[in-house]
């Protein structure tokens, strides 16, 4: 899976107004609930790189009776860079690097029980899909949640379809091998 571009996402979050690092991390995790949560260190490193490249700048520092918090904001260059990135197409994944795929192929090649694995994986997928559907259809779900759960559901569905077809192919393949 292609890694999400953290610097562009932070630029996007800054577009709605200046923010400090802690706030940015919180908002990132809220907006992208299904993604891996950002680490503070990663946030600050990325912000400093943005400042170094001229895409962001420090607005000020204030200490509200606590530790120092630096506020950052986006520059004009940063806004242009963001627009360019958002408009570019993402290359459709040319490589298949899925773990499920790898397990099944290895099982077939080494004479393992691919069928049993597929059945168990299928049950796990369906369980996750049920959970995600409940989240998606809960009353009051906001647009970002709906979009991200929909994305996950569609990809899980794609995995599931591949697993079902593979299971059917395995049955045919086994029958051919047995008959030979």
């Amino acid at each position: 899976m292609i890694a999400m571009s953290t610097r562009h996402i932070l630029l996007g979050l800054l577009a709605s107004g200046p923010s400090h690092g802690y706030d940015l991390k919180r908002r990132h995790d809220e907006r992208f609930p299904q993604a891996r949560p950002l680490a503070y260190g990663q946030v600050y490193t990325t912000l400093q790189r943005l400042v170094r490249d001229g895409l962001a700048e420090v607005e000020g520092t204030d200490s509200d009776g606590g530790p120092e918090r630096t506020t950052y904001r986006s520059t004009d260059d940063g806004a242009r860079e963001l627009a360019k990135w958002a408009g570019e197409i993402a290359p459709p994944a040319p490589f298949v690097t899925n773990e499920i795929f790898a397990k099944v192929v290895v099982s077939i090649l080494s004479g393992g029980d691919a069928d049993a694995y597929l059945a168990a994986q299928r049950a796990a997928h369906m369980q996750r899909m049920r959970e995600l559907t409940a989240v998606k259809t809960a009353p009051g779900a906001d647009l970002a949640t709906v979009l991200s759960t929909d994305y996950a559901l569609n990809h899980l569905d794609a995995d599931l379809r591949w697993m079902t077809t593979t299971a059917a192919r395995l049955t045919t393949l086994t029958a051919e091998v047995d008959a030979a």
């Binding site: 369906m126 899909m129 049920r130 559907t133 899980l156 599931l160």
Partner: peptide, 11 residues
């Protein structure tokens, strides 16, 4: 359709 089946409690 698996996405429709995901609306159910059990399959």
């Amino acid at each position: 359709d698996a996405q429709v089946a995901a609306y159910a409690d059990r399959e």
